[in-house]
């Protein structure tokens, strides 16, 4: 009796120990995760002089929003450019997203539902795109864009962003379509719908969460893209944020607070988008990878 009791207690202690080590681990991880973001924000509140001190001021002695005002003040040089970059990023990301979803929806549906010859090969080919580093495409695309006269245009970016946006969108959406019972469409077709009506009237409304999730992915992917924008764009008025903010950075005299304010502003839209729509986001990513 006492033996059993003590064994039970030990087991409970064991489980408690696991739980506690889990909590401590999470706490440390949280520190590791947010520390850089917090430091980014704190630095952005400093003056250039305050940032260049050692040991650093852990909280600025005289916090200022000066760096942010400078970024959004359209009358200054910095502000004018930053606002331009911001709009460029929004424009490119939005258009990429719309195009990716419009093209990916039918393709994903076909890959999920139809068994046409070559289906596996084509799906493989589509997925394979994301295996290749951007650099493989960079040289020939640069040459292609030059030939098409698209260098220094947003067209070049949107076209290339589609190539990585599409495979991901197709894969994510296929995951959603796979989870919509095929019987729903069969029922619709028996109820008098054509194949297209069954898709449009029954499946499309059900896949709205998938479309939202896919849109966020495409948007964030395009918003954060760097290499192509860095290579294809040289004119300031065309640049997107990730490339544009380099202007705060020169090897000798980096305006760290200004740079941190700019990266903070750049991160806000995607983080907000993500936090608001987190539900869809996480589900979409794992839908295809985890079979329920």
């Amino acid at each position: 009796m006492t033996m059993e009791l003590s064994a039970g207690a030990a087991k409970r202690r064991g489980a408690g120990g696991w739980r506690w080590s889990g909590r401590i681990f999470l706490l440390l991880l949280l520190g590791f995760t947010v520390m850089p973001m917090i430091w980014m924000f704190i630095t952005s509140l400093k003056t250039g002089f305050a940032a260049m001190q050692y040991p650093p001021q852990w909280w600025p002695a005289e916090p200022t929003l000066e760096n942010y005002w400078r970024l959004i003040d359209p009358s200054g040089n910095v502000g004018r450019d930053f606002i331009q970059y911001f709009w460029n990023s929004i424009w490119v990301s939005t258009l990429t997203t719309i195009l990716a979803v419009v093209v990916a929806v039918p393709a994903a549906y076909a890959f999920s539902r139809f068994r046409f010859p070559g289906r596996n090969f084509l799906f493989f080919a589509v997925l394979l795109r994301n295996m290749f580093p951007a650099v493989v495409f960079l040289v020939p695309l640069f040459i292609l864009m030059k030939a098409l006269g698209l260098v220094n245009t947003h067209g070049s970016l949107i076209l290339t962003y589609l190539t990585f946006g599409l495979p991901l969108a197709i894969w994510l959406l296929k995951g959603f379509y796979d989870n919509i019972p095929v019987q729903l469409e069969q029922a619709a077709r028996i109820d008098g719908a054509t194949r297209f009506q069954a898709f449009f009237l029954i499946v499309m409304p059900l896949s709205t969460p998938g479309i939202i999730a896919t849109s966020i992915y495409s948007f964030i992917g395009a918003w954060n893209e760097y290499i192509y924008a860095y290579t294809f764009l040289t004119r300031h008025d065309q640049m997107t944020l990730p490339v544009g903010i380099q202007r705060f950075f020169s090897e000798n005299a980096t305006d760290w607070p200004g740079l941190m304010a700019a990266t903070f502003m750049m991160s806000i839209p995607v983080v907000v988008l993500f936090l608001v729509l987190q539900r869809y986001f996480v589900r979409a990513l794992t839908e295809g990878a985890v079979k329920h």
């Binding site: 947010v34 980014m40 050692y54 903070f264 991160s267 995607v270 987190q278």
Partner: peptide, 28 residues
Amino acid sequence: LRALLLIPWVVSAVAASYVWKWLYHSDF
């Protein structure tokens, strides 16, 4: 907690690179 832990993954690599470069700065 989960949302906070996901932030690094959403933030652009460009932003991450700059802030870590600042964190690693040899003088400050």
